[in-house]
């Protein structure tokens, strides 16, 4: 990309949509699980208010990299992360950064819907409560309502907010979890294969939602489905064996990949 004349410092260029401010910038990130190196020297700049997709075969390190961005790897005893990751220019791997506060800025949605064993309301209110975002009950009510509306779930659950979160269907649970993530007003939302446990209709609903959320958030999504990456993302990164092989505008990656391995993966020759 460096040879492209349109690139400006601190931005990510997209041929159709122009330059975007860089939200997450990684450089030289290595991850080790015990003695095994899972990620080799990954450097990438991810733009704000866009959807960036990470694709690649199983075990290629895309989820590992995703978990670096909100320091979820800290919760694994054997994991060791080195290199630099900056959000808005601020280093997050620094000792002075509290991962608890970082995770309020960088929300995450997982592969399997994981609502807490609480009511729908308490699931969404959980984040605002632990971070003290609402001073009154009314304020909390309005945060929950807004979040559920943004996640497109409000109309379906407005009359049964006191029911347990896991009484919902799989697709609804996943949207509940997204609402839960939105409720703390994050800047970045990470999604780790958010649709792999869902049926096609629920998947379509979530993809629509991802497209709507792009207006306000920096979204990073790991997916196994290349069709999904093509549908929802503006930028795509291809990982292979712990290396970031290629990163660029989605159309370019899918129609005109520069790397041989990317081409082989996209055309279904492996993975």
């Amino acid at each position: 990309m460096a040879e492209d004349a349109n690139v400006k410092a601190g931005t990510v260029y997209h041929p159709a949509e122009g330059n975007r401010k860089v939200k997450v910038a990684a450089s030289g990130v290595d991850v080790f699980y015990a003695d095994k190196q899972a990620l080799h020297d990954v450097s990438v700049e991810i733009g704000d208010r866009a959807v960036t997709a990470f694709i690649g075969p199983s075990g290629c390190g895309k989820s590992t990299f995703l978990r670096c961005i909100n320091r979820m790897n800290d919760t694994i005893d054997t994991a060791r992360v080195s290199g630099s990751i900056r959000i808005d220019g601020e280093e997050i791997n620094d000792r002075s950064v509290d991962p608890v506060l970082l995770r309020a800025r960088v929300g995450m949605v997982f592969q399997k819907p994981n609502p807490f064993p609480k009511s729908i309301f308490d699931n969404v209110a959980y984040g605002p409560r632990i971070h003290g975002l609402a001073v009154s009950k009314d304020e909390l009510d309005s945060i929950v309502e807004t979040s559920l509306k943004k996640a497109g779930l409000w109309d379906e659950v407005a009359d049964r907010l006191d029911q347990p979160g896991n009484s919902l269907s799989g697709g609804q649970q996943q949207r509940l979890v997204i609402a839960r993530a939105i409720a703390v007003n994050p800047e970045v939302i990470l999604m780790d294969e958010p649709c792999s446990a869902l049926d096609p209709i629920a998947t379509a609903r979530i993809e629509e939602l991802i497209d709507e959320l792009r207006e306000n958030y920096c979204l990073i999504i790991v997916t196994h489905s290349m069709a999904q990456a093509a549908r929802v993302s503006q930028m795509t990164a291809f990982f292979h064996l712990g290396h970031l092989v290629e990163f660029g505008p989605t159309e370019e990656i899918f129609t005109n990949p520069r790397d041989r391995r990317t081409q082989d993966y996209i055309t279904g020759r492996f993975g």
């Binding site: 909100n70 608890v100 929300g107 995450m108 399997k112 994981n114 807490f116 064993p117 632990i130 993530a181």
Partner: peptide, 19 residues
């Protein structure tokens, strides 16, 4: 996945356990 969910919300360890 439940613990991950709570950690990803920015809950501390004891909050995750209690809640």
């Amino acid at each position: 996945s439940l613990r991950d969910g709570a950690y990803a919300m920015g809950a501390t360890k004891s909050e995750t356990i209690r809640h």
